[in-house]
Every structure is written in C-alpha cells, then in structure tokens.
Simulated assay, not measured.
Amino acid sequence: MSQTAPINIDPATSPAGLRHRAEAHAAAFPALLAQAEHLAANVVLGDHGRRRAGMGDEFWQYRPAEQGDGLRDIDWRRSGRSDAHFVRQKEWQAAQSVMLWVDDALSMTFSGGKDRPTKGHRARVLALALCVLLNRGGERFGLANRGTPPRRGEGHLTRIATHLMAPEGAADYGTPNARILPAGSRAVFISDFLGDPTPVEHELTKSADRGVKGALLQILDPDEEAFPYDGRTVFESMSGAVQFETLKARSLRDAYLERLAERKAHLQDVARRTGWRYHCHHSSTPAVSALMWLYTALDRGA
C-alpha cells in the first residue's frame, strides 16, 4: 500500500478560489481571537511587563525609518539635515517592545492527523495569545513579517489578529527579517525552522549586534518527530516543488532522525551564542505550555 507524506496543498489561483480562501480566513478570525484570549486566560501575569516610571520621555536614539513606520513616527527636524528619514526612539519604546515573526510559509500548513491543528494554526494562536498577555502588561508588540510597528491597545490587537489571518505565503519555507526590529527590543520567531538554517543564523547574529534578544519557538508535528512511514512513500514539499519517492521509507528513518536532531542542536547553539533562547513545541501537546515558556523566556531576556 502506498502513502504520501506530507500531502501537497496547492494554493488557489482562480478569482473564485481566492474569494473562497478570503471568506474562509475571515470566518476563522473570531475563532482565532477567542482561542488566543482563552489561552492567555490560563497564564497568571507576574512582574513581567511592569511600566517603569520616568522612562517615557527619555531619548534613546535616532534610527533610519523602515517599512511599517508611519508619517507621525518621522522626526522631520532630524530628517531635514539628511537625505534620509529618521525616527526618534524613546528608551521605553525600545526596552518594552516585542516584535514577533510568525512563519506563514506553506510548510506550516502541514498536519499529520485530523485530530491536531496545523503547525501554522498553532503558531498563530500562540503569537496572538502572547500579544494578549503583553497588552495586559502594558507593553508594545508588533508583527515583523507584516511590517506592523510595535504599539499596544485593543485596536492594535485586532489588527495583529487580522494580519495573522492573511493567506499563507507561496514559499515552502519562511525566512525571518530582523531589519525592522527596534534596537534594544525583544523578539519572538515562531516557525518549524525546517528550511535552510543559514538565514536564521544570519538574522539572529544581526539582531544580537543591535542589542535585540528573544526566543526561538520551533513547532513540529508529531509525525515529523516520529517518522512513522513505511513501504512505498512519496515525500513532497507543500508546494509540490520538491518530490522524492522511495519503496523503503523505514530505511530512511534513522538518517532523518539524525538530521532532525542536528537541526535542533544547531538552533539551540545559535540561540545560545546570540543571547536568545530556544524551545521545541509539538502541535499535539497543550498550547499553554509553549505560551508559558515564551512569556518566561521574554521575562528572563528583558
């Protein structure tokens, strides 16, 4: 008996298909926000996120304007002395800002069973739940891969949820972008990290050079950990761009598990060297454990 792992999902390209996907995402928006609120309710806030009096008016630095900055963020006096635009950052904005990158590549749409969520859904719920907690703590949060600058408030939380529900990207694997992370801020990267690890290492190194610390949360499906495949199997990337067929899938298991262990060890080592923290979460386990880890990791890295 043949089997395929994972199942290829072709993105809709026709106008009717695009509309159907848009309506499906819109319908899921309230459920995502409700799940995030419910998940956040299971976490008791500690000292993390307390405001520090006297820091709000203290100048931090000028930085070049980047994608996602609004016109009101531009310091026109400083920008007038240069050909570029600059943003005036205050200390509390850098020290209390958390930027999230949530992988929206096609690999995150995989689930090995109907009884568990896709990796992407779990990532979105965790990211939004973390934003709920940060908002309650009076902290600013933004979405790096959607160019959403760090702010706070219920309206901003709704905007984040809307961005998280946008259709997936077209690439098999995602790549984080650290260029829009405010210097001295904190960051969270949520992905399966199964693509080329070089861009991830590059972004973490650049972040560390700018005083940015944060957390890497790797989300994997249990099937990606156990490799439960045997006999004739067709392995295919979610976009269908890469395909490999074998008659003896079980013979690949040891080599696969070794490569996966090496990938985890590499991510953990890169995180340690750059002052970040790393954790692997399985989509079959309760989401609250990963949320607690994220919240604690940011607290320790603050």
Rank of each mutant, 00 (worst) to 15 (best):
F235E: 01
Q243C: 15
T198V: 14
S239L: 06
L204M: 14
Y229R: 03
S237H: 06
F189Y: 05
D230R: 13
R263C: 07
G240K: 00
H266W: 14
T205C: 09
H266Y: 09
R210D: 10
T205P: 07
E258K: 05
F193W: 03
V212Y: 01
D230N: 11
L252H: 05
I190E: 04
R250Y: 10
A241Q: 12
R253H: 12
T233S: 15
A249W: 05
A215K: 02
L217W: 08
T246S: 08
D209I: 12
T246N: 11
S251T: 09
A241M: 06
S251P: 08
L247H: 13
S237R: 07
D221W: 02
R250G: 13
L220K: 00
R259Y: 11
A208H: 05
L260K: 00
H202A: 10
L194N: 04
E224D: 10
A241V: 10
V242N: 07
R253G: 08
D196C: 01
T233F: 14
S207N: 05
V234I: 12
L260H: 04
A208E: 12
R263K: 08
L247G: 11
A249V: 03
L216Q: 02
E262A: 09
D196K: 05
G211I: 05
P222D: 01
A241C: 09
L217H: 00
F189Q: 03
K264D: 09
A249G: 06
E245W: 05
D223F: 15
F244T: 03
A261C: 06
Y229G: 04
L260I: 06
L257Q: 03
Q243M: 15
A226M: 10
L204I: 00
K248P: 13
L216V: 00
G195E: 11
H202L: 15
R250A: 11
E201R: 13
E225N: 01
D192P: 08
G231A: 08
F235D: 06
H202T: 14
I190T: 00
D209F: 08
L217P: 02
F227M: 06
Y256N: 06
L260W: 04
Q243E: 13
F235G: 00
S237G: 15
E245I: 13
P222E: 01
T198A: 15
R210Y: 15
R210Q: 10
Q243L: 14
F193H: 04
Q218C: 03
G195C: 11
E203S: 04
A265T: 04
L204W: 07
V234N: 08
E201Y: 14
E258G: 07
L194Y: 03
T205A: 14
A241H: 05
P228W: 03
I190V: 06
R263E: 02
T198R: 14
S191N: 03
L267F: 03
D221G: 01
A226Y: 11
G240A: 06
Q243V: 15
H202K: 13
L220R: 07
G211C: 09
I219L: 12
P199N: 05
L216D: 02
D209L: 13
D209K: 11
T205D: 11
R253M: 13
K248T: 13
R253T: 03
L257N: 05
K206V: 11
T198W: 15
R250F: 13
D196W: 07
A261N: 09
D230M: 10
L247S: 15
S237C: 10
